[in-house]
Computed example of a mutant assay.
Amino acid sequence: MTAIYDKTAKKKATNVSINSDLLEKAKYYKINISSSIEKTLEVLVKEKEVQLWEEENKEAINDYNNRIVQNGLFSNGLRSF
């Protein structure tokens, strides 16, 4: 899987507002907040990038699918199943 960001990039401090009860429970269970946020952000960013790619390529995807419906796959005559 290709990384969607530079995992070796320098860390940057930021301010985040988190529900106080949720934060206390995370601390109680010794959950690494920074790591958890990074993992969640990675998933969210990847989802957005996939969505953007699909939107940008929607016309080409539809054209390809229509061509396959009209002409079939090049290997249709070669399959034995």
Rank of each mutant, 00 (worst) to 15 (best):
T2R: 12
T2V: 11
T2I: 13
A3C: 12
A3L: 14
A3P: 15
Y5G: 11
D6F: 01
D6Q: 04
K7W: 04
T8K: 09
T8P: 04
A9W: 01
A9Q: 09
K10G: 05
K11M: 03
K12Y: 07
K12D: 07
A13P: 10
A13R: 15
T14R: 09
V16K: 02
V16T: 02
S17L: 11
S17T: 14
N19T: 05
S20R: 04
D21P: 03
L22W: 03
L23N: 05
L23I: 01
L23V: 01
L23C: 01
L23Y: 04
E24W: 00
K25N: 07
A26K: 00
A26P: 03
A26L: 11
Y29L: 14
I31K: 02
I31H: 00
I31A: 00
N32S: 10
N32K: 10
N32W: 00
I33F: 04
I33Q: 02
I33D: 01
S34V: 03
S34R: 02
S35T: 12
S35K: 15
S36L: 11
I37S: 02
I37D: 02
K39E: 12
T40R: 11
L41I: 13
E42L: 01
L44K: 15
L44H: 11
L44Y: 11
V45R: 10
E47V: 06
E47P: 06
K48W: 08
K48T: 10
K48V: 10
V50N: 08
Q51G: 08
Q51H: 04
L52M: 09
W53I: 05
E54K: 08
E54H: 07
E55Q: 08
E55C: 01
E56F: 01
N57P: 04
K58Q: 06
E59S: 09
A60N: 11
A60Q: 11
A60L: 10
I61Q: 05
N62A: 11
N62G: 02
N62P: 03
D63R: 06
D63F: 02
N65Q: 12
N66T: 10
R67F: 09
I68C: 00
I68V: 12
V69I: 11
V69R: 12
V69M: 13
Q70S: 11
Q70A: 15
N71P: 10
G72R: 01
L73H: 12
F74P: 14
F74R: 13
S75I: 07
N76T: 10
N76V: 09
N76A: 14
L78P: 05
L78H: 07
R79F: 00
R79C: 03
S80M: 10
